[in-house]
Write a protein that binds this DNA or RNA. Structure first.
Lengths: 338, 338
DNA sequence: CTGAAAGCGCTTACAG
DNA sequence: CTGAAAGCGCTTACAG
């Protein structure tokens, strides 16, 4: 005869059990194929945990970075039953200093786990070192740093996504040149967009010979309307017929096309922002490459939860799907359901 | 003072409570923003339910219909904690009588809910009538019958999927005619494939003028190898340059292309069967339109569970996404993770 | 109509 | 090292 307390001790490797009784219990557990009831377990244990998220601050509700938060909140509200709390922190995409100060706040909180976007490489690495010292597990979302000791990465393979963009634009473009546009600054730090561009260029260098010449430009600041005229000049001067926007800001090109009547352009961009969908439906944008940011937020919280609270295995590095969205299938991607 | 038992009675509308105490309790519940702990609730209630599934029998592990079962089993194993049981029934896709006999077995079981594929329209309608008489809720998977009193439909909008196929094939086909192939029999009954064909034809009639002539053929029986020669003749006689296969059997066309050296054909088909992926990677099939059957199975069980056991609202008619899969993004769709 | 008690399958101190 | 008891937040008979 053994008591339930002793059984629990071997079940959770809490020690203080004689080797002989331990083996006897283990044997019985195996014989009975015992499956712990996780409902009863979490109810009784009253475990709780605090997680922190550190993501770019979305300037408005229609921005990309608003979307992961939707999924994060969904999973949090489900997990509130488990006594889970999540503290959100944000930083500015244009200001590495804001990342440093926010990440310091996270460290001060001493959370049980962190979900964050390693947007600025150098600053992220320093943050990671501190997390490791404190043995706080972390999950990357949206962009990744390889072999940094993360619990996992939730996001796309950006290089591969660039290849996909290249192939699709190549298919619908009989002739003419192509302009890649980064609506961003600090490009060297934004690994993400660089990888997309790299995949895109590689498609053409490997598959398309010299049918199209490729050009690249950056638009670091759209508040100054001068950029429109500049890009328009490039389009005309270089015989541009196709445009690849490396992030969710492709709606700026939609506006440019409508303003200057450049509807002959073939355009590919990213992400299901409301305005982007509008241009897709008007046949001004032809493809949107998407990545279900709500699902990613949901998965990221779920991953850290499973690891920290449930102590379950979670597979490393699951790339998200690279969704090809066109006018005819967009309606079946808009909704987030889980 | 009120006892916890009384509170429970008003919480679940089990009556036997004086109107005055009832109102008092309701008020307090609202004041405290009381949220029931569903862990404790299901643990204590020991509710249980039996569901039935009725799906086509997959002849082998590499067939399409094996996939929804993977998702179904995943959700079942998670729900086993809740005392849920699922009894699987199958029928033959080529034999309506087998559907009738299996559906009769389902009815005899008197399950608390049913997930099924209304593959044969007439036979399904009779089954549905019996389910309604018995007040057994049911969810459609894969194909649907409109306004039949279902709790919901998990699957694609087939017509829209056909439109997508049409557009994509049109984009990569400069000239030549197109052959639509149904690897199926009893076509009039299989609403599903007919809808895909309809969408496909509509794309060309509305968008592409007379660039391509469209032909359609059926291959009801692939065990007789004669079909290959027949289809090859059609391809040559009709100047066919593009092929649209309306279901997951596009690998048969892959085999035909390799056998007769028809690599110039542009091919579009459905679903991530192993052999299909192989042809996609060899550039013999150019697009696969997909629908995440594992997720669909998972969702279907989840939907009936939420309705029957948790008594929660579940939105009706959520079409699944229409995934466009090419060689470059296929690796990010193969895995089922949840 | 209302209250008090037992129990769901676990975990967590605590006494020995 | 081991066992017995209390409790997690509910539900479910049952006594009054």
């Amino acid at each position: 005869m053994v008591s339930i307390g002793t059984v629990d001790r071997v079940l959770h490797n809490r020690g203080e059990v004689a080797e002989s009784t331990r083996n006897r219990i283990l044997g019985i557990i195996k014989d009975l194929d015992y499956q712990p009831n996780f409902l009863a377990s979490t109810l009784a244990s009253k475990k709780s945990a605090v997680f922190a998220t550190l993501l770019p601050k979305p300037p408005s509700a229609h921005e990309y970075w608003y979307k992961p938060v939707v999924g994060i909140n969904k999973r949090i509200s489900e997990l509130s039953q488990y006594g889970i709390e999540v503290k959100p922190f944000t930083f500015s995409q244009t200001d590495p200093l804001s990342f440093i100060s926010a990440s310091n706040q996270v460290l001060k909180l001493l959370p049980d786990g962190v979900v964050f976007a390693p947007f600025f490489k150098k600053e992220s690495e320093s943050f990671i070192n501190h997390l490791k010292e404190l043995s706080i597990p972390f999950v990357f979302i949206d962009s990744e740093i390889k072999n940094a000791g993360q619990l996992g990465y939730i996001g796309q393979n950006s290089y591969q996504s660039g290849l996909v963009s290249g192939k699709l634009l190549d298919q619908i473009l009989r002739e003419g040149n192509i302009l890649t546009i980064h609506f961003a600054r600090e490009m060297d730090n934004q690994n993400h967009l660089v990888q997309r561009e790299k995949g895109f260029y590689d498609w053409f260098s490997k598959n398309s010979g010299d049918n199209h010449k490729l050009y690249t430009t950056e638009v670091p600041d759209t508040t100054d309307p001068e950029w429109m005229e500049r890009v328009r000049q490039t389009i005309l001067d270089k015989n541009i017929k196709g445009i690849f926007v490396t992030n969710s800001k492709v709606f700026f090109i939609g506006r440019l096309i409508e303003k200057f009547g450049l509807q002959y352009l073939k355009v590919i961009g990213h992400d299901l922002l409301k305005e982007n969908i509008g241009y897709l439906k008007k046949d001004i944008v032809h493809f949107l490459i998407c990545q279900r940011p709500e699902e990613q937020g949901y998965s990221a919280i779920n991953k850290i939860f499973r690891h920290v609270v449930q102590k379950r295995e979670t597979g490393n590095e699951n790339y998200s799907s690279i969704d090809i969205v066109i006018k005819e299938n967009v309606d079946y991607y808009k909704e987030f359901k889980q």
